[in-house]
Amino acid sequence: MNQRRRAWREILLTAPSFGWLVVLFVVPTLVVFAIAFKPPDALGGIGHGWTLGTWRHLGNPNYPAIIWRTLWMSLVTTALCVLLAVPTGYCMARAPRRWRQPLMLLVVVPFWTSFLVRVFAWKTLLHPDGALKRLLVALHLVADSTSLLYRPETVLLVLVYTYLPFAILPVYAASEKFDFSLMEAAQDLGAHRFRAFVSVFLPGIRRGLLTAVAMVLIPALGSYVIPDVMGGTNSEMIGNKIAQRTFVDRNLPHASALATLLMLAVLLPLALYPLFAGRNNDQKPDRKEVA
């Protein structure tokens, strides 16, 4: 009797969230996969029968370029974010204890600020008549005619700006748990400070680094607003194409196929994650790595 009541309670507690997510997350995702194999109809709806036609369309030269650009922009963004996050996270973790909380707040606040507001702030800053542009022209770093906006580099800059806190937080969290006496031990054993950093500290925060990579790479792959607002046609990403196919062309199968592709691009790093994360504790770097 007790057993049955327990089972009932479990179902009672599980059902609301479970049901909600099945209906509004699992089912729609499956619908997207299904529609990718449907033909479009002339009215912007979905035709009858099944087809691979949409997938063949993705071979059209337009798409590989965009897919390629999405991948490299996301990877460069991720690399830059992690590169900036490691010294920052390290510095925050080594700061005196009473400074850590305020430092973390400083990193978190931009992350809590409205996303659109942050993107817009860059638009103001990079505006042809803006302060930054005039400063750069005065320093003869750029010509008056060059635009700082609507370039792939601009998109990259704002991507890094937006996702940097996502990288700093996990790196900081891992660094804070890291036992810094290990670095002293390495130096004591004759490792140069930088050597100790590379061969003891970085393996020690490996999980934090991987989380940072995932936290930046995944949303960067799905970017839509930043290339839309900051970039031109030469910096479109898959996200822009999905929106365009959905709203402008009303070609839902095309949009679905692109979405499926994006989904695969996201799932791939996630599937690889456990491979890199390893089973052993992140506190203990492998013997091999230290040696």
Partner: peptide, 9 residues
């Protein structure tokens, strides 16, 4: 899952 996928689905 990226927002754009959630939104579209």
């Amino acid at each position: 899952v990226p927002d754009i996928l959630a939104g579209m689905s």
